[in-house]
Nucleic acid binder design. Structure first.
Lengths: 327, 327
DNA sequence: TTGAAAGCGCTACCAA
DNA sequence: TTGGTAGCGCTTTCAA
């Protein structure tokens, strides 16, 4: 039903050849103004729309990139996506967005179909490289926030180490000694962010700090903070796995009657714009999310065009401490 | 550089015809296991990836929908987009997302390119119908939150009237009489939401209520509330144009030393999930954003397939009051 | 200024 | 089980 009226129909109705139709529609010169108008009229009347496939087949331009993210509603990924869209638009490229709903099954399904629709894939993937490779079958791919072993892939690396150290330095400078962390829950292993945190604490002679776990939501953060403070009421500061959890912690702290940052300082991770709508505004180890998205697109573009990859050091995004009000 | 190795190359290397290659790659039966393996090996070795254009040309399936939104970072649009993505995924359709950066110029540019890439367009548009029509050239389009005159378009209509009335009823029932509103700023005319509000107030004999204007951001909401309370210190409740503004108002109220909802009740509009991360959680006139996105996709699909449009009453999304904590 | 022919890369439909 | 032929809808030579 969809693709019905073709260039031939227009040609017939306009009483010209289809090459002439093509000329009229694509604003090529070498065509009589009258003829052109006649063709345009016929096309409009018939409701003619050129087939993107036929056109794409003969003009080898137009780049489309698949962006795979676990959850668009997670503000962090929203920001990365926005950065990617902007970078793509600037280049005239198109981005098909796939939300895998945090499900590895959906991710598999997505990978299955994405390869037939785009020139390259960028995003966050959970599958291991072998399976990724199998699905992708040679399509250029840029993994965000994850290193790769196979040379078939490219990565945007995230380095939060410096930022986390800055955060701990900041807290210690403000007099904090009893600093806890709310890591993420539900994954097999503790996060890198936790390692960085422990490391930074170590540097200040603050050993074996307290670490709780929060499920990935504001409520999760609130609950986790309650538990943590329950067991360690003497904490004066917490660093969290990310901003969402931190916002929950903020809320929990208030309910506990603790002033932030007076009684409890809170530092998140991600540096979401959202951090400014809560009160106090969230201090956070900030990642440049727009840049992450933009880099992924830029790198994907190079891979598609067969250009050399961006230099490794440019594929790295480092976090810095963003001091707002909560610490 | 991009599209180099074709099915013919694979056929040559594997020593078969290209039809056989096609069979092997598409898991058709009627092929010898050995041959198939040979083909697969050759394909992999050559790094062969089928052209999506050629494939699309011959198999007339695969639906791609363009989603045009003013600002992905606005949580309301994020939620709508997420709903659209989910609905599209369920159908195996693809969604190309375009962020027009709240700019009519970008919107024009987007429309220009989108028509060549998708089967239908859905989203939020600022251009008038005539220009829209000119750009779209007959492509099916679904306008969200905006009515259409031309039969060429389809609309998802938003009705907040009932919800706003519920909100005012709720406030009045709680004893509020001095209820103000923070409308949006910067647009030519006052919003429909304001009309609904005034209407609902009227019904309770509360005439000529106070209306301020806020720019679309949390800070804007905070600033606007300060001004409003400055001029009308006796207000005990505010209804806002949307949740973002409401969150700013929440923050401002706290800074003013006003308890929410004790000293000042706050009701937003949109019902964002985000409303739960602030404290107190935001009471809001809620729209089912997922449903909006899903409906837009469903309707677009019908238009593409030439099926009859969804019935008018199903194309309508009504807001309902979502009572949380702020009122 | 226009049209005829060729071909983009692939799959469907036959016949072998 | 395989291959030949045709053709999807369009643009690009090249002649007329």
């Amino acid at each position: 039903m969809s693709r019905r009226v073709t260039i031939n129909d227009v040609a017939r109705v306009a009483g010209v050849s289809r090459q002439t139709v093509s000329r009229a529609l694509n604003d090529k010169g070498e065509i009589d103004a009258g003829t052109k108008q006649r063709v345009l009229d016929a096309a409009r009347e018939l409701g003619y729309r050129p087939s993107r496939f036929a056109r794409g087949l003969v003009r080898q331009d137009s780049t489309t990139i698949g962006l795979v993210i676990p959850d668009l509603l997670n503000p962090f990924f929203t920001e990365v996506a926005a950065g990617a869209l902007e970078a793509a638009r600037a280049r005239g490229w198109h981005v098909i967005v796939y939300d895998t709903a945090d499900s590895i099954t959906v991710e598999r399904g997505t990978l299955e179909v994405v390869v037939a629709q785009v020139d390259a894939v960028v995003g966050y993937f959970s599958l291991d490289e072998a399976e990724l490779d199998r699905h992708l079958g040679g399509m250029p791919a840029v993994l965000i926030g994850r290193d790769h072993r196979s040379p078939r892939f490219s990565s945007i690396r995230i380095d939060g180490e410096k930022g986390v150290h800055e955060a701990v330095d900041h807290l210690v400078a403000a007099g904090h000694r009893r600093i806890g962390m709310l890591d993420h829950a539900g994954r097999a292993e503790p996060s890198l962010r936790r390692d960085w945190f422990i490391d930074a604490m170590d540097e200040h002679g603050l050993h074996a700090p307290v670490v709780g776990n929060a499920v990935q939501s504001a409520d999760g953060g609130a609950e986790a903070l309650n538990e943590l403070l329950d067991q360690h009421p003497d904490l004066t500061a917490v660093f969290t796995y990310n901003d969402i959890i931190a916002m929950g912690a903020l809320k929990a702290a208030r309910r506990l009657g603790k002033a932030v940052p007076g009684d409890l300082a809170v530092v998140g991770f991600d540096g979401l714009q959202l951090g400014t709508v809560v009160d106090p505004a969230l201090t956070s180890v900030a990642l440049d999310t727009r840049r992450i998205g933009a880099l992924a697109i830029a790198q994907a573009g190079r891979l598609v065009a067969g250009e050399p990859s961006l230099p490794d050091e440019e594929l790295l995004v480092s976090a810095v401490l963003l001091v707002r009000e909560s610490a």
